[in-house]
Amino acid sequence: MSVKDTNVFERGSDVADRENAERDLPVTVRRDVNTVLAGFGGQGILFMGKVIAYAGLLDGREVSWLPSYGPEMRGGTANCSVCISDAQIGCPLVTAPDALIVMNQPSFEKFVPTVKPGGVIVVESSIITAKVECNNVAVHYVPATTLAEQHGLKGLANIILMGKLLAAAGFCSVETMTETIKKIVPARKAHLIPKNIEAIELGMKA
């Protein structure tokens, strides 16, 4: 099949060229991952998504991060779609994720049935008691909030869960993730970098 991009838009052609160049890479090197992250507002859902997207950016890949946005500022449900790919991201809204992190019951009910066969689900099991009744997906139950408290990592439950997803879905290397944490944590919170890295390691082993 020969599909050629003829882009008449001046700057846009750079994107097309990059896309074509990257499509020639061996596909086995890097996996495309379409992720949904969901929970309550305040659980760090959107930040977790930013970390994943930023890791893709550091790897020089195409990424997209799309938040849900609604009228509620606090306490409502929050979710976001993150795509990492070597080609231009088609639809940044992920309707059939191959990776899912859920941090509350409503999100569990809403998103678990949307996961693609062969996909990965990470469940925050200190908040969600339900079990996934479907055997064509890999499910990991991580009591992240409890683990965070036990290890002096309060507030980093989201990062622990992301560590688990990193181990299970391999959306980037551990080195890239460490680099990402160093870059994305704001300077005024730089003292939290080691804690974040610890949380990722804890999650990977969980």
């Binding site: 950016l57 997209s64 991060w65 799309l66 938040p67 991201i89």
Partner: peptide, 12 residues
């Protein structure tokens, strides 16, 4: 649209 406005992507 709201999708392009709200989403993050790599940009030069």
């Amino acid at each position: 649209d709201g999708m392009l406005g709200q989403m993050m992507e790599p940009v030069v």
